[in-house]
Measured scan of single mutants.
Amino acid sequence: KELVSALYDYQEKSPREVTMKKGDILTLLNSTNKDWWKVEVNGRQGFVPAAYVKKL
């Protein structure tokens, strides 16, 4: 599985998104959309802005 690192804090703005803190390591589930990537963090799945994470 592919991992990404959070470059910035992000506070979810809808139920489809997830909150992350800078430095968090997230499991990348889907990166086909260039703007929003689906990740899993702390057992929750949702979307984060692609520009806020980088692949490890």
Rank of each mutant, 00 (worst) to 15 (best):
V41R: 12
E17T: 09
N30P: 03
W36R: 03
K13T: 13
P15K: 11
V39R: 00
S14D: 11
G23V: 01
N30I: 09
K34R: 12
S31A: 13
G23M: 03
D24S: 06
W37L: 05
T27W: 13
E2F: 12
P15D: 14
S5R: 15
S31W: 09
Y8W: 11
E40W: 06
E17K: 04
T27C: 13
W37Y: 08
R16G: 15
L56H: 10
L29W: 05
Q45W: 08
D24G: 03
E17R: 04
Y10F: 07
A6E: 00
T19K: 04
K34A: 13
M20S: 01
V48W: 01
E40N: 04
R16Q: 13
A6R: 00
Y52I: 07
A6S: 05
V53Y: 01
W37C: 06
D24L: 04
K38E: 15
A50N: 02
S14G: 13
E12T: 09
E40Q: 08
D9A: 07
K38W: 15
V18W: 05
I25G: 02
T27R: 11
D24E: 11
T27G: 06
K21H: 11
T27K: 12
S31E: 14
N33R: 10
S14A: 09
E12L: 08
K38Q: 14
K1I: 14
D35F: 15
Q45V: 15
E12I: 06
Q45T: 14
Q11S: 12
D35S: 11
L29Y: 04
N42S: 09
E17N: 05
P49T: 01
V41H: 14
M20E: 00
V18D: 00
V18F: 12
D35I: 14
Y10P: 01
G43N: 08
Y8L: 11
L56R: 05
S14M: 07
W36K: 02
P49R: 04
S14W: 06
V4D: 01
K1Y: 15
K1L: 14
I25V: 12
W36S: 02
A50I: 03
L3F: 14
R44G: 03
K22P: 03
G23E: 03
N30V: 09
S14H: 12
L29V: 11
G46V: 04
Y52H: 08
T27Y: 13
V18P: 01
P49D: 02
E40M: 09
V18E: 01
D24K: 02
K54D: 10
E40D: 09
Y10L: 02
S31P: 06
L29Q: 03
K21P: 00
V48S: 00
V53N: 00
L56E: 10
K22Q: 11
T27H: 10
I25W: 05
T32S: 14
V4M: 08
K13G: 09
G23R: 03
W36P: 00
E40L: 07
Y8M: 12
G43D: 06
T32F: 10
T19W: 04
W36H: 03
L3E: 08
S5V: 15
M20G: 00
Y10N: 01
L56C: 14
Y8C: 15
K55E: 08
S14R: 09
Q11G: 08
Y8K: 12
L28N: 01
D35T: 14
K1R: 14
V18S: 02
A50S: 13
D9V: 02
Q45G: 06
V53E: 01
K13A: 12
K22V: 09
